[in-house]
């Protein structure tokens, strides 16, 4: 009898240990205490609830921004300056926008212009700003069975792939990259189908790996591809520079009408910070040391103005 209870207690203690060990280690999971911001916030007022827990801004974004490492590079500056934790949920563009529609996120950073405009038109967002762009590239095996090398038109390249029935891996996940791919197919007047067209339903990194394994073509954003080259891939860039491959990122504040839980002020502060010239400079510098070129090109109105360019027309 005694022994029985001993063992029941042992199991219990074991479970508690498992739970408790995580519990004691929890503080490490939160960024170490950052002293209250000495620097006055640039424009917007400081968050009202500084006395309580540090506020958390939920940023829904596409896998490309997180996988490239851009957010990890620039977000600490925002967290420190505004004493805010930013929770990044990296999903496909489709889900990111849905998170906004459902009021599960405060702010969105996505790249699917048509869907973004629809989002704003439906009243799901309160503010949208252009942030930056990167470009898409068509990559494929060095053997280049479809003979794309040297082509400058993405639609022509896609037509060639379809004609030769060369394997092509599609994201197939409603992501921004997938939307772009579908737009190019549509521009080429092709409905891609057949054994050669592989719909993966996975993120960019996984799709690139798959294309590498299967000696297939795919459409990739430059940042993820460059990051993968550091790990080693046989895939080479075959088509780039076509204006249709332009990939603009927008930032959207979710409409605060969706509930009191939406951090509308923080979202606006975040957008102001993201499009400000110093942050845009950070974006432009990201990746230069590692890859020799920028992964994202700053493109906010404030930035364009500072560079003597015309602001966006929208």
């Amino acid at each position: 009898m005694n022994k029985k209870w001993l063992w029941f207690v042992a199991i219990f203690v074991l479970a508690l240990m498992v739970a408790g060990c995580g519990g004691t280690a929890e503080p490490t999971a939160v960024p170490t205490d950052i002293p209250a911001p000495e620097v006055a916030p640039t424009d917007a007022p400081a968050p009202a609830d500084t006395a309580g827990e540090r506020p958390r801004l939920l940023l829904a974004t596409t896998t490309s921004t997180e996988n490239s490492g851009l957010l990890a590079e620039i977000l600490p500056a925002f967290s420190q300056e505004y004493n805010v934790d930013v929770d990044v949920v990296a999903v496909g563009t489709g889900q990111a926008l849905q998170l906004g529609v459902d009021g599960n996120a405060d702010v969105l950073l996505v790249h699917a212009r048509a869907q973004e405009d629809a989002f704003m038109a439906n009243g799901d967002g309160s503010r949208r700003e252009d942030v930056m762009y990167n470009d898409f590239i068509i990559v494929g095996p060095p053997s280049d069975p479809a003979g794309l090398q040297g082509m400058t038109s993405a639609t022509e390249a896609f037509t060639k792939i379809a004609e030769t029935q060369s394997p092509f891996v599609s994201r197939g996940d409603d992501s921004g990259t997938h939307s772009k791919e579908k737009a190019i197919w549509a521009a080429a007047g092709i409905e891609p189908a057949g054994d050669w067209y592989i719909s993966a339903g996975q993120g960019m990194g996984a799709v690139l790996t798959m294309a590498d394994e299967q000696q297939a073509y795919t459409l990739s954003d430059r940042a993820t591809y460059l990051a993968l080259t550091l790990e080693g891939t046989e895939l080479v860039i075959l088509v780039e520079g076509d204006p249709i491959l332009f990939n603009p990122y927008g930032v959207i504040a979710v409409n605060p009408d969706k509930g009191a839980h939406i951090h509308a002020d923080l979202a606006n502060q975040f957008i102001d910070w993201l499009i400000s010239v110093p942050t845009q400079e950070l974006i432009g510098n990201f990746g230069v040391a590692e890859f020799g070129s920028s992964l994202f090109i700053p493109d906010s109105n404030a930035w364009r103005e500072s560079q003597g360019m015309e602001p966006h027309s929208n």
């Binding site: 479970a15 508690l16 498992v18 739970a19 060990c21 995580g22 519990g23 929890e26 490490t28 999971a29």
Partner: peptide, 12 residues
């Protein structure tokens, strides 16, 4: 630590 905490607590 988080894995242990989440799964451990859920198990408990």
């Amino acid at each position: 630590a988080l894995s242990l905490r989440v799964s451990g607590t859920a198990l408990l």
